[in-house]
Amino acid sequence: MVARWLSRILGAVVLLAVLLVGGTALRVWQVARADERDKVDAIIVLGSTQVNGVPKPILQARLEHAKMLYEQGVAAEIMTVGGKQPGDAYTEAQAGTKYLAEQGVPRSALVPVGEGNDTLMSLVAAGKHLHDQGRSSAVLVSDPWHSLRSRTMARDAGISADVSPTHGGPVVQQRSTEIRYIVRETAALLYYRLTRTSADDIGSA
């Protein structure tokens, strides 16, 4: 009798775990397809790798998408976020601002916030900047699979956030790459919800 009940309990736990992971993966996939372009206070570009102030392809794709949103009038300001690794001359935020200025975006419309070495800390810093200016709404620009986790973190940081992910660049070119990123983002989001700390070594940003 005891063994039977233990077996049922174990089965229920496994089923709940499967439903939780599967439901989270489905939401990652759904939000990756969102594209919200209502007028907001700022467009926030999540950082990624740069070398000597030159964005690598993932970050470049995000910056190009943000530039398009700016030109469409989604916001009058583009906020680039992200710190730097030891030895870097530029923060990810500075590299993003430099690139956008070179592409013709007015310097007055660019706000680099070079604090934070992961998604959570970057969004906390971005939220503080917005709140200090008496503002709160933003559209987040990142990779599709990173959208749900970044939106969740942004809203927890007090930002009224929607998402408009990129649909170009290396992370959306192959089906196998997409599946790998969905799996990683599912794990990273569950980790964040459990611990309220970032997991960018698991996730894709």
Rank of each mutant, 00 (worst) to 15 (best):
Q60C: 09
S108F: 08
E64A: 14
I179R: 05
V74D: 01
V111N: 06
S164H: 03
L46C: 04
A161Y: 00
K39R: 12
R4W: 09
G87D: 11
L20D: 11
R149D: 08
A76D: 01
A76V: 04
P165K: 06
S164Q: 00
E77S: 12
L69D: 04
V18L: 11
A66H: 06
S122N: 11
Y90R: 07
H167P: 13
E71P: 02
K39T: 10
G168F: 06
R62Q: 09
V171P: 04
V13P: 15
S198K: 01
P144S: 13
A76E: 04
G23S: 10
K67I: 03
A101N: 08
V139S: 00
L19V: 13
D143T: 03
H129R: 04
S137H: 01
K84S: 12
L15N: 13
R193D: 10
G127V: 02
Q60D: 10
A101K: 11
A76K: 15
I44K: 00
H131Q: 12
M121D: 08
T97R: 02
S147L: 01
G47L: 09
H129D: 10
S142I: 08
G134H: 01
K84M: 12
L59A: 06
A12V: 11
H65W: 00
Q94K: 08
A188T: 09
T152E: 15
N117I: 05
L26F: 15
R184P: 09
A188L: 02
L63E: 05
L190F: 15
R27V: 14
L100H: 06
S122K: 00
R193A: 11
A161I: 05
L26Y: 13
D118Q: 14
G11T: 09
Q72A: 13
K67H: 01
Q30K: 09
K128L: 08
G134Y: 00
D38F: 00
L100M: 08
S122E: 09
L59E: 03
N117G: 15
A61K: 07
V113M: 00
M68P: 00
W5F: 08
K128A: 12
V14N: 08
G96P: 12
M79R: 02
K39Y: 14
K67W: 03
L69W: 07
K67G: 01
P55R: 02
T195S: 09
L63Q: 06
L130M: 07
M153S: 01
L189W: 04
V21D: 06
K84A: 14
L100C: 13
N117E: 07
G96H: 10
T177I: 09
R107H: 15
L6P: 06
K67M: 12
V74A: 03
A138W: 10
V54K: 10
Q72K: 03
G83M: 08
A34M: 09
A188S: 02
Q30T: 09
H146K: 13
V21C: 11
A25K: 10
V31C: 03
G134L: 00
G53L: 08
P106G: 14
V51G: 05
A101T: 13
R149W: 01
M1S: 12
M121W: 01
A154V: 04
L190Y: 07
D200T: 05
G114T: 12
T119H: 01
G82M: 13
I202D: 06
V124F: 06
V40C: 07
L15G: 13
H146A: 12
V183H: 12
R193W: 11
G116D: 02
D156I: 03
Q103A: 02
L19G: 04
A205K: 03
G96S: 07
